[in-house]
Design a protein around this nucleic acid. Structure first.
Lengths: 349, 349
DNA sequence: AGCAGTTATGACATCGTTATCAGATCCAAG
DNA sequence: CTTGGATCTGATAACGATGTCATAACTGCT
């Protein structure tokens, strides 16, 4: 007799039931159980019912890992997603869109945060690959993504989001960064601003380079010489952005407008302009939307991105490739939209 | 001779290399490769180097799925996380905290959104289980979680977050919802408010019930009879919340203060109060923090939750259990914090 | 020299599933 | 009554790794 505390009994209880267990209980072979579970034809109604009952009784869950090992298509119905940070609203919106597309295909998503750390890029990608994901959607920070070439050759679709890869030809879904920046700067120029400051992130980041390029090119095209004193890079948090604004406002000839090239930076700018009492005097246009922007006083004019589209396009591309689409790699450029709310329409003093 | 287009050659190229391939290239047995990859002892330096070189050359990545099948501990180093929605800031913060803890242990996280849909709860949980996750962290909406009993018995740790489970004894990490609501309501009562409206979510949601209970109990304890006309449930989006506020303001004896029990509802309330020009007349305290709350005019007083702690505690609990901790299930109550910013300190008119 | 103990290695079974194939049964048509 | 073709079923190999165990070559000790 086996008692509740008998280790063997516990062992049996603790083990997840296998197809063999179901087969024995139903009095059929394992292959028949496999057929029922996978809804394959050529099983009698009566056998199906018996197997179903046994599976139910044991609370059987098939082990996909074991199945995938042998299965012909070798798919794990799993996808790896690497974003800036799952806690960042932009990344979260991308993630959500990817999840929604993946859900339609019963594909589960591994999500991971990059934190602009090259080491994390490698370890996340490796973690995904060891788990045999069917495809990858990646935001990257390594100078080159050539290390992914072999995976691409082996038919694992890889789509880059938000940033274009280097050293490898692969699909990329990116915001029209330079054009968006151009729109912002032209908007300010049209109001008469000439002293327009640029506050941006580390130029190691693709989007930062692009947005800065848009800013510089646009100024020059309109005959305004960019001034080094009005250009600040490497702002990777809100506090640094605030400090930078304080310094700009203290100049002899301070800027009459600010183009803030990233959303955390925009928050820092708002804080700093307010505490200097300059928020209704200095114009501000931010790249990427800011939560509650419409509720602020003044409301914040931004170049809004469309993270949901980015995620959706990336996910669809991965699945198209998994479905056999064999096109050359290409970029998908997602448009931005200038949302006029007030802060960007302040005229120069 | 095999040409580039020879299907066999392509086949070989496309296949991910196996340990056998590495073993053959290095001129050793598969078990030796396994030892090297897993850093097991009893392999000569020279052999290690040969195997490493071969693995490098083939860009070999071990297949964890195959390994897990045989491995003694049966761990997949994978965790399933179900949150309200990965795009929601509260959920995203929980997710991020879970990811950070998981990363320390080289555990990958499947993240999924519940969307308050009972069907989605079941399908997500099943998707996780079929993929043999080591543990589950779940936000739920089904009336009972008894269906998870077998998994719990089999030793899969399950920790519920944000909502307490029903019909099953399992760990739960939850915000002190009723107490937080009490704090908000007492804050308003102390200022002299007696007509305090409650705007809340569907009572099917655990947190909504708890917060409402806190509101009702507190009013009664302070000798204020709750008024049905001032209590609105089932507000599941911003627009509905706005409409509800408009109706409340149109009453003969409108509320002098509003307790908004969820963050999307708070946004709707703000919008509506503003458009009615009542935002500096009617007091507002929201449950759960709102982005940019400090920047608004008036700034929004809230009962802030601590999603990062919730995620961290839940993840640690899962790993403690995986490490063999055998305590009875318990609740972890995460405190709230009343953040006084202005909107909640408006006195009754 | 002989023996025990350690190190280095690989053959083989095994994990839980699916693919292949062969055998049994049944039915309809000749 | 045979034949051919479905339909139903299960035995067995295989997937890519790890666990077990046997074997061979050393090492250090009597």
């Amino acid at each position: 007799m086996t008692s509740l505390s008998d280790p063997r009994r516990n062992e049996a209880l603790r083990r997840r039931p296998t197809m063999k267990n179901v087969a024995d209980l139903a009095g059929v072979g394992v292959k028949t159980v496999s057929r029922v579970i996978n809804r394959e034809p050529h099983v009698s109604e009566e056998t199906i019912a018996r197997v179903r009952r046994a599976a139910e009784q044991l609370q059987y869950q098939p082990d996909m890992q074991a199945g995938n090992l042998r299965r012909a298509d070798r798919r794990t119905d799993t996808l790896g997603l690497l974003v800036g940070s799952v806690a960042n609203p932009f990344s979260a919106a991308v993630h959500r869109a990817v999840e929604d597309i993946a859900l339609e295909r019963h594909v589960a998503v591994f999500a991971s945060s990059l934190d602009e750390d090259p080491e994390r890029e490698l370890s996340s990608v490796n973690a995904f690959l060891r788990r045999r994901v069917d495809g990858l959607i990646l935001t990257t920070i390594q100078p080159s993504q050539a290390y992914l070439g072999a995976q691409l050759d082996r038919g694992i679709p890889i789509v880059f989001v938000d940033r274009r890869p280097n050293g490898i030809e692969a699909d990329a879904v990116i915001t029209e960064n330079a054009e968006g920046a151009t729109g912002a700067v032209e908007h300010l120029l049209a109001l008469g601003h000439r002293r327009i400051a640029y506050l941006g992130d580390d130029e190691k980041i693709f989007t930062a380079r692009e947005r800065k390029r848009g800013y510089l090119d646009t100024l020059r095209r309109h005959g305004v010489a960019p001034e080094d004193r009005l250009i600040v890079d490497n702002l990777d948090d809100e506090a640094k952005a605030s400090d930078a604004v304080a310094r700009l406002l203290a100049l002899d000839d301070p800027p009459t407008a600010i183009f803030s090239a990233q959303n955390l930076i925009t928050l820092g700018v708002i804080t700093s302009l307010r505490s200097a009492g300059a928020s209704t005097r200095v114009a501000l246009v931010g790249f990427d939307d800011v939560p509650m922007a419409a509720m602020l006083e003044p409301a914040i004019t931004v170049v809004a991105q469309d993270p949901a589209s980015i995620g959706e396009i990336a996910a669809r591309r991965v699945f198209d490739r998994l479905d056999g689409l064999d096109e050359p790699a290409r970029d998908f450029i997602v448009p931005t939209r200038l949302i006029v709310r007030g802060s960007g329409e302040i005229r120069p003093f």
